[in-house]
């Protein structure tokens, strides 16, 4: 168990670093994929809501620490993303590529819209008198949808990787339990 936490921790850490550095060279239409979000969605799909929520929380927290303006913003969203996706997966056949792509696409849209709305909400709390403008349609067209498509593409590769990771971890867990 401890080993598992350690490995997943390192995995999140590495994804966070890659996300903030190398991925800047892979921008398409000014949008880059969000590997951390894909990781949260996939691990929630494969492992259920509790683990999804915990992984979501820490993946979000690492994003907060790397570049967030406040600590907790992405952690909260990641927690609920993992929780919701993990709760939905019970009825679906999860060991299927298409399910992963489908989930990544729609969860990314929901997640990124939540980021936008929560940001606007925060702006409102800080300065209630200043008029808040919503550009939901623009944002949807230029940021959210391209990112969702990109994320879904990436999710195919991530799916294989994450699946392997959890299989290995489970195997090691079982091996450790024998003694």
């Amino acid at each position: 168990m401890r080993f598992k936490v350690f490995i997943i921790g390192i995995f999140i850490f590495l994804i966070g670093v890659i996300q903030s550095t190398i991925l800047n060279y892979f921008e398409v239409y000014n949008v880059k994929p969000n590997l951390l979000v894909v990781f949260i969605i996939l691990s929630a799909l494969l492992r259920g809501n509790t683990e999804g929520a915990v992984i979501g929380f820490f993946a979000g927290l690492s994003q907060d620490i790397i570049a967030g303006k406040v600590v907790g913003f992405y952690a909260l969203l990641g927690l609920y993303l993992g929780l919701v996706v993990g709760s939905l997966n019970k009825r679906l056949y999860r060991e299927n590529f298409l399910v992963a792509i489908f989930f990544t696409f729609f969860s990314t849209i929901a997640y990124e819209l939540a980021v936008y709305l929560m940001y606007k909400g925060g702006e409102y709390i800080v300065a209630p008198t200043a008029g808040i403008q919503f550009n939901v349609l623009f944002v949807l067209k230029h940021i959210v949808l391209p990112e969702a498509v990109y994320n879904s593409g990436i999710s195919v590769f991530m799916y294989m990787l994450v699946m392997k990771l959890f299989q290995k971890l489970e195997y090691l867990d079982k091996a450790a339990r024998k003694y």
Partner: peptide
């Protein structure tokens, strides 16, 4: 500059 914002919303860098 050693890192940029991981998301697509903000323009923050380290």
């Amino acid at each position: 500059i050693i890192a940029k914002d991981p998301g697509n919303w903000f323009n923050v860098f380290t």
